[in-house]
Design a protein around this nucleic acid. Structure first.
Length: 772
DNA sequence: TGATGCTGCGTTTTT
DNA sequence: CGCAGCATCA
């Protein structure tokens, strides 16, 4: 990722002429031979196997620059797809650095879904949609399925809507039309009604003029398969294709790519089979493993020189991943120093593990290490809890990455539902969501009436409401409320073309009583929700109109970036993919956690291998320092469980490791237990578990030191220590931004113990509390 | 319609 | 244990 300065791009001087080979273009400087080959092999299928930290993004972006510089392609002839919006943004930015404003003329750089949506809108009629179709989110999808289950008299207890949503997702990931769904799978839902429900679901989507995420690709495939001329048009347009993170593609994406690449065959896929960690959501590693069969004559290029990590880190990661059977095989190498050994910390329990990590971080901090260069990567989010508790106690600023996303919050979705109804009155799901939010006395009975009428007369829900509210079939109270609501929507719809959309948004939230509702809410989060609504309206300014904004929102469900506060990063291994940090902590290396028990139970050896890849991803995030740890006892759903060290620890050769016993680890006890019970932890079970120099000296840290600065969680201000902390006495009522209201139980120096009404008893630094 | 209590569940997540 | 989702009751 550490790119040297890019040289100016020669596009302007020689727009259409190939750069003579004798004088390599400046942007090619500094590439190693393999990277250079990957960049320059422009024609024909190419698979770039790019290990962690080998500069794959650089290859991808330089390749685009090269395509443009050599005149092989114009910007609009290049299709480059990524999975996430973040990756797409980064690519755009980096290509922009090389080629300047030309990047703005690259309309086909984006996620699979956004490109799919773009193509679909142009040809919507061909698949039975109106170009203004809406894209449903998971909430809408679940609501729709629930309606179908009710209509079909299916017991929602036995066959939850979520389960069916999972099936649907799985089918669409594999590109399966209802007729193609394997009989067994279709039969396993609701006594054989699976296929029928799938058909009904698709019919309902067409009526609603909506698609779900899976359809963005499925409908594309349908479009291409049934309209040869449309397909030909795109095959011709996309003369060069680039795919990032190819190991994460699912079958539908693969089919889509194959259709488009059939003509030109100029497809370049970049990926790493050793970083495939999304098998459970449909990613098919086989796509990468069989690339050479799919694209005969494909050139395979391996990037094995790592520019990120020290030799010790790389050695550990390489040996670990070498235990996997299904892989194409790469050997990462570096010219870096060995660097520090990987620390493996053994602790007595998970609480001590959290304390140790806290102290290690405090030590690093004393050496001027920036907190934001530190990450703690956990397998599952329940592991975060004890870490967070500890950090709160010692006032260590931290940030949780990848928590609930901004656009997924209740208040945001409600607000969006209002906007959606205004823009597309046929959007029954959006209407249903907010019809009684805030409370208007429009309950189940009313909704049932509306649904019945809408179905019988095949009109949108809003239309049904309009008709029914002017008849005598309804009781006066709901009738009046409904009429008011419809009148409001009519008014807002009229204002849509005349008033700036941000202004309209404010008006809608105000006049609907939505803002009022949260103002009257006394819960701890209400203030935050109002703040989020303001942020939402503010973020709308960057869009031309409401429609544009809604399209963005449905495809770019982004988290709002947390502030630039210096804080430790806490996240799952999955969300760490693609990131790098100077120091990486990997807690919970225990059997059952990593590898996760459920993975083992449900997917056997394949599951184990994916877990191992996850472990490998974790280690390779570290640039200079990795600290693994495991605890013998762990608090899980209120119960103490004993755990054995992860088998992955034993797969890392001793030479890369420095073993450390945490304070208070009962070495002797552990020792004897491991000796008896543990078959695969030889390294840790035998007397070979050496007493390395303990990380003493930092044993007693001066905690609660004035670290200041706001603490953030999920990008929100968690707590602020504003100068000298307020004085508290036992019995004081206090407020904490995360834990809510509570009462002071004990005071010791800067720290207090608080009994929170909701969150229970916590010990924390007083400066994070306000008087209530 | 709201409040309250009970049951069941508990891995990873993007679009 | 803690939470979410649902059912039941007032």
């Amino acid at each position: 990722m550490a790119d040297p300065q890019y040289k100016p791009f020669p596009f302007d001087e020689e727009p259409r002429r190939a750069t003579p080979p004798s004088r390599p273009a400046p942007y090619l400087e500094g590439l190693n031979p393999e990277q250079l080959e990957a960049v320059q092999s422009l024609d024909g299928p190419v698979l770039v196997l790019a290990g962690a930290g080998t500069g794959k993004t650089r290859v991808l972006t330089t390749r685009i620059a090269h395509l443009l510089a050599t005149g092989k392609a114009r910007p609009s002839n290049i299709l480059s797809v990524t999975f996430t919006n973040k990756a797409a943004r980064e690519m755009k930015e980096r290509v922009g650095h090389m080629v300047g404003d030309i990047v703005e003329g690259m309309p086909w750089m984006g996620t699979f879904h956004s490109i799919g949506a773009k193509i679909l809108r142009r040809h919507a009629e061909l698949v039975g949609l109106n170009p203004s179709f809406t894209i449903l989110d998971t909430d809408d999808q679940i609501r729709l399925i629930k309606q179908l289950l009710q209509a079909g008299n299916i017991d929602e207890k036995r066959w939850p809507a979520r389960l069916f949503a999972g099936y649907l997702d799985g089918w669409k990931n594999r590109g399966l039309e209802p007729e193609r769904v394997p009989a067994g799978e279709a039969a396993s839902f609701a006594n054989g009604k699976g296929k029928e429900l799938y058909v009904q679901y698709q019919q309902r989507l067409k009526v609603l003029n909506a698609v779900d995420f899976g359809d963005l690709l499925m409908e594309n495939i349908r479009l291409f398969q049934n309209n040869a001329e449309v397909l030909a048009q795109y095959q011709h347009r996309f003369r060069y294709m680039l795919v990032d993170e190819y190991q994460d593609t699912n079958v539908a994406q693969y089919l889509w790519l194959r259709l488009l690449a059939q003509e030109s065959k100029n497809i370049c896929c970049v990926g790493d089979d050793d970083q495939s960690i999304y098998g459970w959501r449909g990613a098919d590693v086989d796509n990468i493993l069989r690339f050479e069969q799919d694209f005969p004559g494909a050139k395979v290029i391996r990037l094995e020189r790592n520019y990120r990590s020290t030799a010790n880190i790389l050695g550990a990661a390489s040996h670990l991943i070498a235990n996997n059977k299904s892989r194409l095989g790469k050997t990462l190498r570096t010219e870096d120093e060995p660097g520090e050994k990987i620390k493996v910390i053994e602790t007595w329990d998970s609480g001590e593990e959290a304390r140790q990590i806290g102290e290690e971080i405090e030590q690093l901090q004393r050496k001027q290490h920036k907190l934001s260069d530190i990450a703690i990567l956990v397998r599952a989010s329940f592991q975060m809890r004890q870490l967070e508790d500890r950090f709160v106690e010692i006032a260590m600023p931290y940030r949780v990455i990848g928590g609930p996303r901004f656009y997924e919050r209740q208040e945001i979705r409600d607000a969006l539902a209002y906007f959606r109804v205004i823009v597309s009155p046929a959007d029954g799901l959006a209407f249903e969501r907010i019809v009684n939010v805030p409370k208007r006395g429009l309950g189940d009975t009313t909704m049932q009436m509306l649904h019945d009428y809408a179905r019988q007369n095949e009109v949108p829900l809003l239309e049904a409401a309009r008709v029914l509210s002017s008849t005598d079939d309804m009781k006066p109270k709901p009738r009046g409320a409904l009429r008011d609501l419809i009148a409001s929507f009519d008014r807002w719809s009229k204002q849509l073309p005349t008033i700036p959309h941000t202004e309209l948004a404010r008006i809608v939230l105000d006049e609907s009583g939505y803002t009022e509702m949260w103002k009257n809410d006394k819960s701890a989060q209400a203030a935050g929700r109002l703040e989020n609504l303001k942020e939402l309206v503010r973020s709308m300014e960057q869009f031309e109109n409401m429609q544009g904004f809604l399209e963005h929102v449905s495809l770019v469900m982004d988290t709002i970036e947390g502030g630039d506060v210096d804080a430790v990063n806490l996240m799952t291994l999955h969300s760490a993919k693609g990131l790098e940090f100077d120091t990486v902590f990997l807690p919970g290396w225990e059997e059952g956690i990593i590898p996760h028990q459920r993975s083992l139970d449900e997917s056997g050896r394949a599951g184990l291998e994916e877990e191992r890849r996850l472990a490998h991803v974790g280690i390779t995030r570290a640039k200079i320092r990795a600290i693994l740890s495991f605890a013998s006892r762990r608090l899980t759903h209120g119960m103490w469980n004993t755990n054995l060290p992860s088998r992955f620890l034993d797969e890392i050769p001793e030479e890369f490791i420095e073993k450390i016993e945490g304070e208070g680890s009962y070495a002797a006890q552990l020792q004897s237990r491991f000796d008896r019970a543990e078959p695969f932890t030889s390294g840790y079970s035998t007397p070979g578990w050496q007493r390395a120099q303990a990380r003493k000296g930092g044993g007693f840290s001066e905690r609660g030191s004035s670290r200041g600065g706001p603490l953030t969680i999920e990008g929100e201000i968690l707590a602020r220590s504003s100068g000298p902390s307020a004085e508290f006495e036992i019995g004081d009522r206090v407020f904490h931004d995360k834990f809510g209201y509570g009462e002071i139980m004990e005071v010791e120096g800067t720290k207090v113990t608080v009994e929170f009404d909701k969150a229970g008893e916590k010990k924390l630094v007083a400066s994070f509390l306000k008087k209530a």
